[in-house]
């Protein structure tokens, strides 16, 4: 009896942890690069996007897992899209009503969570095949892994591109020389590609070292 009770919780943690490193959506699965490149020009936007994605992923994973037995395979993708789009619309209305500054900052990228392939990917690959319990673990793990990846990219871009670190309007610190002569290149779109490319290479290298 005891073993059976422990097992699901252990598996819950495994499904949760995998999102951070083993199947990190950005650096390992290389999914959802569009928002990763677009909203990481400041830490505020990256964190706001991360929170939005966690909410939508959690909602869509739970619902899709609940209805998985009744969903006819032939219409599963339209069903997933409707569920995901509903959650994104709810999120966008709630943000607009209660946290307008974040709503303004995220702009179009909030609505574009609908087409974020991480969410559709998890619905297809995980939630439609697993129980609600593990789907929650998967959503939280992958969602937080995504947020963490956005945070790393935006942290590097903001530090290099402005020489300062500002979180929700609070100036944490500024680097003496860099803040006067910031490398604005890193805040512009090409900087996003460079930072993301180098981070992908780093994660690949770490993966290779681990396998050896």
């Amino acid at each position: 009896m005891e073993i059976e009770k422990v097992k699901p919780i252990k598996k819950f943690w495994q499904e949760f942890k995998k999102g951070f490193v083993i199947t990190n959506p950005v650096f390992v699965l290389v999914l959802g690069l569009c928002p990763t490149l677009a909203v990481t020009s400041s830490i505020d936007n990256a964190l706001g996007m991360g929170i939005g994605v966690i909410f939508v992923l959690l909602g869509s994973n739970i619902i899709i897992s609940l209805i998985r037995r009744f969903t006819p395979p032939i219409v599963r993708i339209p069903v997933f899209i409707v569920v995901i789009a509903s959650f994104v619309t709810i999120l966008s209305l709630v943000f607009e009503a209660f946290i307008p500054p974040l709503y303004e900052a995220l702009g179009i990228y909030l609505a574009l969570i609908v087409v974020n392939c991480i969410i559709l990917g998890r619905a297809e690959a995980f939630a439609s095949k697993n129980t609600v319990f593990y789907s929650i673990a998967d959503a939280l793990g992958i969602g937080m892994g995504f947020t963490l990846s956005l945070f790393i990219v935006s942290f590097l871009r903001e530090i290099l591109g402005t020489g300062k670190l500002t979180v929700f309007g609070l100036n944490l610190f500024s680097i003496p020389v860099l803040s006067q002569l910031p490398l604005s290149f890193f805040i512009m779109p090409p900087g996003a590609f460079l930072v993301l490319g180098l981070l992908l290479a780093l994660f690949r290298w770490l993966g290779v070292l681990k396998n050896e």
Partner: peptide, 23 residues
């Protein structure tokens, strides 16, 4: 499949109308 998809859309529409009316 058609009935199921219609049902999902219907539920979604009702839910969104409700959230919209609150916010």
């Amino acid at each position: 499949p058609l009935i199921f998809l219609s049902l999902i859309v219907l539920v979604s529409v009702v839910l969104l109308m409700y959230v919209n009316s609150i916010t």
